[in-house]
Design a protein around this nucleic acid. Sequence first.
RNA 1: GGCGACAUAGCCAAGUGGCAAGGCAGGGGUCUGCAAAACCCUUAUCCCCGGUUCGAAUCCGGGUGUCGCCUCCA
Length: 485
Amino acid sequence: MGVRVYNTLTRRKEDFVPLNPPRVLIYVCGITPYAKSHVGHARPSVFWDVVRRYLTYIGYSVTLVQNFTDIDDKIVKKSKETGLPPEQIAETNSRQYLESMRRLNVIPADAYPRATQYIDEIIRMTEALLAKGHAYVSGGDVYFRAASFPEYGKLSGKNVDQLLPGARVEVSEAKESPLDWALWKAVPDGEPGWNSPWGRGRPGWHIECSAMVTSILGPSIDMHGGGTELVFPHHENEIAQSEAFTGVKPYVRYWLHNEMLNLEGEKMSKSLGNVVALDELLAQYPPEGLRIYLLSAHRRKILEFSIELLESAVRGWERLRSTMERCYDFLRIPADTGVSNPDRLESARQKIRQTFFAAMDDDFNTALALSAVFDLVSALNSALTEDKGRAAGPEARRMFAEAYLDLLEFSGILGVLPDVWGAQREASARVRGEGFKDLVELLVRIREEARSRKDWGLADEIRRKLQENGVVIQDEPSGTRWSIR
RNA sequence: GGCGACAUAGCCAAGUGGCAAGGCAGGGGUCUGCAAAACCCUUAUCCCCGGUUCGAAUCCGGGUGUCGCCUCCA
């Protein structure tokens, strides 16, 4: 056993062996905060959050860094259009992204560095690349000489010779070759810029990640993530810059890329304009539902997005949540009751455990892991249904509790652990005012009494009024349960 | 033009040689004053055509279709 990951560089699944176990250093390409975040941005965030949770769970000590590229052409353009300073645009959108992450239950990265905080490092790196002959000055710009890095193209599988004909690369008189890219760009007065040995300018697009990775995490990291769209040229260029600069190979031991979200068959992207705002979704749907949706396909597969699909995932989450609440309530009743067929539950549980961990080990197959979670939901619900309150002894009860704890554990790894201890119920009740809970419970008691008198009119009215106020009533053989939705 | 990925039920999706996971939706049933939830049963000739094999969704060849990257992008 052990984790295996599909590495974009080798195009194979490989055993995951970190450089200095148990430490695992991870860098994930974050957003360019020139506009609001959309659902697509949540895919890598949630995926890497699960990776971090799982690796931590199995004993690794994870350091995860995610950047903001807070200065680039788009931000400058936006600044010109709106008249707002670029820092403000970047900061507003970065904060909005982080707020969405918080709502999505994403464990905060150990650092969220900004490109503009690493200008000195970028300049130093550029100077070093010049000194080593990997870069050249042209006008006030500095370019990386792709031809100076023989392995250029190794990540994306591009053949440099075939890249040129018909290529859509930017043709510029300033560049020796169309494949070269800017490390530093001269900027006209009035645009944001920093002083440098080559005059006032700002960093090119790819160098900031190399600078942040090497200065924060070192010359060689364990995993690097980002969307497939970044494989070329962004990550290809990052490898060239970083390995040329540090002389250390490999810059990244395992490259893990996530596929895109599609909207009506087309890639969701800001440039196409077919985006669904992340904060708006989170305002309307439970974040756990969104996580379940995002984890429902393997990260290397394109996933179709629609409100209907999100809503179906939300319904799945509601089932998971209500199962946990039922299990919790069940375990609170006196200890001489237990499930009537514990052996069946136990054998299901063992099989499900095996599936879950094998799935996570196999390139973080969250879709399969999620299916194991739902299998456990079904097994627990079956056990609860069969029970009928029979006394089955402490052993049966213990087995039930074990299965329930597994469900909590798996949900925790996937970051969709519902609040089963009622803290949320309590908190919601508090938000609605002291005594809210007492009032609800009083109404439930009154309704129980009405039901025993067969006063259905009153019982139904109480149920309806509570529902209007967000309290859902369910009559079960063992009594009436209520929960806040 | 170059490189690459994908095609599995109504929708989403896992599965890379041994009787086709899971979610949502649908149908039937149990429970129930009603409702809700839950449970049980039920819904697939795995894009097409060849080949390899005792055996193929899975491997090989060909075809068709969809998408991505090569330009900013998670």
